[in-house]
Computed example of a mutant assay.
Amino acid sequence: MDLSYSPAHDAFRADIRTWLDANLPRPLRDKVLNHKRLTRDDYVGWHKLLTTCGWSAVAWPKEYGGPGWDVTQRHIWDEECARAGAPMVLPFGVSMVAPVLMKYGSAAQKSHYLPRILDGTDWWCQGYSEPGSGSDLASLRTRAERRGDHYIVNGQKTWTTLGQHADMMFCLVRTDPQAKKQEGISFLLIDMKTPGITVRPIITLDEDHEVNEVFFEDVQVPLDNLVGEENRGWTYAKYLLGHERTGIARVGQSKRELLFLKRLALERNKQGKPLLHDPLFAAKVAALEIELMALEVTVQRVIASEAGGKGPGPEASMLKIKGTEVQQALTELMVEAIGPQAAAFDPAFLEGECEHSKTGDDDAAPLAAYYFNFRKTSIYGGSNEIQKNIIAQMILGL
């Protein structure tokens, strides 16, 4: 695989960098670069701004409103957005349910939902995990019983990221309780304003409201909101998870955070010298940078394979494992570089309620919350232990 950039791609990068420098709102950029929390308006505003350029869904084909960029252009876009401090476009609509609709959805579902995902009209959330059904997702118990022209849904979902803002949920439900657990599951699109839905916050260790539990009590969902065939939802769920795991690698973000780590280590001294010049710490940073470089090459290979018409395979599990390991290692080294000052916790600063941290160190103040938040990355999207089983079965035949 040729990893060099053509003159046309270099020009494309220059154009993207110029646009981001001119259009990315400075307050939003500063929030991202300084590890502060983003609001619903932050995400929606950025999505709407990208929509005006046709860049809210850069991996979509032109027929559905995407820009028609090639693999390298999309990689450059991701890199430059991360470099500039742009927030990610939330994946639930654009990168997760949309590919499922494109492949398995009805014509009516495509014509209705895809434009609303593209322009940010609908905020989506994911209804997969349940109490007792996380890594063993196929054991889910939320029921959908067919009555007339509706399904009646009862059950509970948990760890629903940003579900408090969502207009729609793509949800796995059990429609045949007598079938084997991977069978008898269906894929529904549920309007979150439907009577009978209750969203309750789960406040995490860093005092943030990012995830929720969602309860369904006799929720009526039209039959037209079934994606594909009844009891074939496990097939669609696996297809979606392949796209999610590829995106979880987040190479551009990790490259940006590596630069932040190096700056921290240059500004902190150990025995009169910058920490980055300490042989032991420098070796840790170098080893991590090598892992990140290898991950980037693997991402490019996988995306190129997908561009050739091959869907995400076991390679997506590799990206999920290594990408999240790199992300966690970065946060660990940040905390190590800061030392005891990283233990400080200033929620008001994280929420943007004050310009500077009460600790006096704006770089250190967010790092404890950042570190703890990234403990989840090796769990969501299918825990890394499960991904290793997938690799063993699909590649090694074990």
Rank of each mutant, 00 (worst) to 15 (best):
W159N: 13
T161D: 00
L162W: 06
G163W: 02
Q164S: 10
A166I: 00
A166V: 02
A166H: 00
D167E: 00
D167G: 02
M168K: 08
M168I: 07
F170T: 01
F170S: 00
C171L: 13
R174M: 00
T175P: 00
D176E: 02
D176S: 05
D176I: 04
P177E: 08
P177R: 12
Q178D: 14
A179E: 07
K180C: 11
K180N: 13
K180D: 12
K180E: 12
K180W: 08
K181C: 12
K181Q: 14
Q182Y: 13
Q182N: 12
E183A: 15
E183W: 09
E183V: 11
E183S: 13
I185A: 08
I185L: 13
I185M: 10
S186K: 06
F187G: 08
L188N: 01
L189M: 04
I190K: 07
I190H: 03
D191K: 09
M192C: 09
M192G: 05
K193R: 07
T194E: 00
T194K: 02
G196L: 02
I197Q: 05
I197C: 05
T198N: 05
V199M: 13
V199T: 15
V199P: 03
P201Q: 09
P201Y: 04
I202S: 11
I202R: 12
I203A: 05
T204L: 11
L205N: 13
L205Q: 15
D206M: 15
D206H: 14
H209D: 05
H209W: 04
V211L: 07
E213P: 00
E213Y: 02
V214I: 08
F215Q: 06
F216C: 03
F216Y: 02
E217G: 08
E217C: 06
V219P: 01
Q220I: 09
Q220H: 11
Q220Y: 06
Q220R: 15
P222L: 01
D224H: 12
L226A: 05
E230H: 04
E230L: 04
N231V: 03
N231Y: 02
R232H: 14
R232G: 11
G233P: 03
T235G: 11
T235R: 14
T235Y: 10
Y236Q: 05
Y236R: 09
A237M: 15
A237N: 14
L240Y: 10
L241N: 08
L241R: 12
G242V: 03
H243D: 03
H243P: 03
R245Q: 02
T246V: 13
T246G: 08
G247I: 02
I248H: 14
I248C: 09
I248G: 09
A249Y: 06
R250A: 13
V251Y: 01
V251A: 05
G252M: 07
G252S: 10
Q253D: 05
S254F: 04
S254Q: 09
K255C: 02
K255F: 01
L258T: 01
L258Q: 02
L258W: 01
L259S: 10
L259G: 10
L261C: 09
L261E: 07
K262Q: 06
K262T: 04
K262V: 05
L264R: 07
L264D: 03
